[in-house]
């Protein structure tokens, strides 16, 4: 296997708060290869967005990366000086945020925002940058781009604005795109278009994509691999078919049971009882144990570490093949 585009190792992110330090991300590791789409799924507060923001270096005080390493194509980026990290953002990593309605500066023409970004990262003349901006708008599927380039964001619909946001994210041909809930704020009818656009762009340019969402359906449709996050940790990670068809972690099982299928089999959607713990009250042992139907004594005391299981990796004592003594 060649070197992954993105490699995250044992990432820890902390937030200082009045009531103490909260650990939003606690020991997360994963890789994304060139051209691969990694879906990151979990409930809100599971640490998916924080993980994405750490990769692009936008964790603001009171938050901080407290441990671990992030490598972008071999270059360690979690401890880069701010100015060097700025050059990585937008150039080598593109980011797409959740709400296209608020992602664009309302007072600037969309063209000016694209040209500004292009000229920040590429050594192009105003004119060449504008031509490139028009090409980009065409590529993301905006009709009559040479006219729309002089429009203001409020003149675009939600879906069209998200296309502009995507054009902004890819305007310097980044190696990695982080898409943080890119379809959540959109109409259902537009969601599919945006998803297929991101997928197509990733394929055409060989870009690695980290797709953060709480929608398992979106992941199943787009991703090559999927990471299931729970309470700041990766519960399970593996190829998307394996995880969807044969989830190993009880939480992942519950999540997969919650995907509505078009086939319309009569099975009721499965619910996971209870809710994810608050960061200030994460239980001892496996953080999922109070909600887990299969929890046993060890789960309440010892935190499970990720274990390889074929192509999948799962952090659950149920799947600990080694005897308990040697594992401890």
């Amino acid at each position: 296997m060649t070197e992954p585009v993105l490699s995250v190792r044992n990432l820890q992110v902390e937030f200082a708060s009045r009531r103490g330090t909260l650990r939003a991300v606690n020991g997360v590791s994963f890789d994304i290869a060139k051209g691969e789409v990694l879906g990151v799924v979990g409930e809100s507060g599971a640490g998916k967005s924080v993980t994405g923001l750490s990769v692009i270096g936008l964790i603001d005080a009171p938050g901080r990366i407290a441990g671990g390493e992030i490598h972008l194509a071999g270059l360690r980026i979690d401890n880069l000086p701010p100015e060097e990290m700025r050059r990585v953002r937008g150039k080598r990593i593109g980011m797409i945020f959740q709400d296209p309605l608020t992602s664009l500066n309302p007072l600037y023409k969309v063209g000016d925002q694209i040209v500004e970004t292009i000229r920040t990262h590429l050594n192009l003349s105003e004119r060449a940058a504008r031509r490139r901006a028009i090409d980009l708008l065409a590529e993301v599927g905006i009709p009559a781009p040479e006219k729309r380039i002089d429009g203001y964001p409020h003149e675009f619909s939600g879906g069209m604005r998200q296309r502009v946001v995507i054009a902004l994210a890819i305007c310097a041909e980044p190696e990695l795109i982080i898409a943080d809930e890119p379809t959540t704020a959109l109409d259902v009818s537009v969601q599919a278009q945006i998803i297929s656009l991101i997928k197509r762009l990733g394929r055409d340019h060989g870009t690695a994509v980290m797709l953060v969402t709480h929608d398992m359906g979106v992941i199943a449709e787009t991703s090559d691999r999927v990471a299931v996050m729970y309470a700041g940790r990766v519960a399970e990670i593996g190829p998307v078919q394996d995880v969807v068809r044969n989830p190993l972690h009880p939480y992942a099982k519950g999540l997969m049971g919650a995907i509505p299928t078009l086939a319309g089999d009569d099975k009721r959607l499965v619910q996971i009882p209870g809710s994810m713990p608050r960061l200030s009250a994460i239980p001892r042992g496996c953080s999922f144990n109070p909600r887990c139907a299969f929890a046993f004594d060890r789960c309440r005391v010892e935190r499970p570490e990720p274990m390889e299981h074929g192509a999948q990796s799962v952090a659950c004592h149920l799947h600990d093949t080694a005897p308990a003594e040697t594992a401890a």
Binding site: L58, R86, R89, M95, F97, T102, T120, H121, V165, A172
Partner: peptide, 14 residues
Amino acid sequence: TDYIRFARARGLTT
């Protein structure tokens, strides 16, 4: 605001 966060994510200079 989001658009400033996005501007930072685009790597614009401070």
